[in-house]
Amino acid sequence: MTQNEHTVSSEHSHAHVHRDDIGAKMGMWLFLFTELLLFGGMFLMYAVYRFQYQMDFKIAAMELSVSMGTLNTIILLTSSLTVALAITAIQKGNKFLAVLNLNITIIFALMFMVNKYYEWSAKFEHGLYPGSDEMLSLPNGQIMFYGLYYIMTGLHGLHVIIGVIILAIMLVLVIKDKITSDNYVKLENGGLYWHLVDLIWIFLFPLFYLIH
């Protein structure tokens, strides 16, 4: 973007560096749309089966812990806040605050995964995992619910793990001054990815945990 070209060319040390931050962001958004359609297909499948098996979905959803889901929602929302704060901090040239907020974001992301681990292992102990005898003895609608639950929260969890890796790389780049107050598009794009993870959870949470 012109803004950055101006800033960059005004500094003699980087006089010939050409950057296209708008282009970088566009690329990121295009990628996010492919993610949207990937999850969109699953939400579509969920919608159709929920209408087909309304009672079964209701009964199966009782097994999920609302408090655990709520806790994870709050964790993800807060981590979205801290990554946004990290971007503002770096824009204002406050490296310390940016590093601090990125660290908090990563810790929250890991907390989310720890909760997920406990949640899933409790289900596994009850014999509720794809293909188990317990699960196959359930009515079709409930098998469908758990199948969708595992694939959708599982794919989301995979995104959380990838997000942690991306955020960790951003953290290193901030520490090494590769991301600075006039070159932060990488951090912005990393943040966009993390917000997408949050966005998907905003829909997963009521659809799986809050059916009564």
Binding site: S80, L81, A84, G191, L192, H195, D198, L199, I202, F203, F205, P206, L207, L210
Partner: peptide, 17 residues
Amino acid sequence: AMTIAAIKSALVINIFM
């Protein structure tokens, strides 16, 4: 639930993103 989720995503997309 879907309306609230939509409002939440609008906030995230508009401000956070």
